[in-house]
């Protein structure tokens, strides 16, 4: 591979702040919380909200907002990494882990190896089951101690912090177990099927 061209006179404005082992390649730290969505923000009323687990076409369990809020809650302090190159350290989330959802649904084992998350507004994203278990992921309803704002995915979004943040789908409404991996919304539009920030898997083929 040839050397990249030097951009004459370009230098780091700030030191690559933050511990290098927490900032993946090509990322930089931000303090605010940018918003990126493909379309209008859905405003779903809590009365109309429910969250469903599905095995293919068959529903396995469903929770209303009140039932969901009554499930055992977990808090996570994690770093998040957006494919548009910003990262944010030490963000605090509260919600229900996927392990807890499986347990509450009476499932000892997940029925399939892959999942598709379905959201208000028609978005979908695919995540392998093993990336959702053992406390690695949750359906989050609170950010920094407050209910999640609609433009950040409220009432509830998936949180899979070890993958690029588009996988942490906003406005999540159901988690569907599927037998084979399939691309979701952004994954069908040129983004990477898995999206590991540490391997810089931004776009298909990376």
């Amino acid at each position: 591979m040839s050397e990249p061209p030097i951009s004459r006179g370009f230098r780091a404005r700030k030191r690559p702040d933050g511990p290098a082992n927490r900032v993946p390649p090509g990322q930089h730290l931000v303090n605010d919380f940018p918003v990126l969505s493909a379309g209008p923000t859905p405003h779903t009323s809590l009365e109309g909200w429910s969250f469903t687990l599905e095995d293919g076409p068959s529903p396995l369990a469903e929770w209303t907002w009140a039932q969901f809020a009554a499930l055992p809650q977990t808090t996570l302090k994690v770093d998040i990494h957006c494919v548009t190159t910003w990262s944010k350290l030490d963000t605090n989330w509260q919600g229900v882990t996927i392990d807890t959802l499986l347990e509450a649904a009476g499932l000892g084992e997940p029925p399939e190896l892959f999942t598709m998350i379905h959201c208000d507004g028609g978005y979908t994203t695919n995540v392998p089951v093993e990336d959702l278990l053992d406390g690695k992921a949750m359906v989050a309803t609170h950010f920094e101690g407050r209910p999640l704002a609609p433009e950040h995915g409220g009432p509830a979004r998936l949180l899979v912090p070890h993958l690029y943040f588009w996988k942490s789908a906003k406005w999540a409404r159901s988690l569907q177990f599927i037998a084979q991996d399939e691309p979701g919304f952004w994954e069908s539009l040129g983004y990477h099927i898995y999206g590991d920030p540490w391997r810089e898997q931004r776009y298909a083929g990376d």
Partner: peptide, 8 residues
């Protein structure tokens, strides 16, 4: 890419 190899 800066002269010192720093990239953004």
């Amino acid at each position: 890419t800066g002269e010192d190899g720093y990239q953004a």
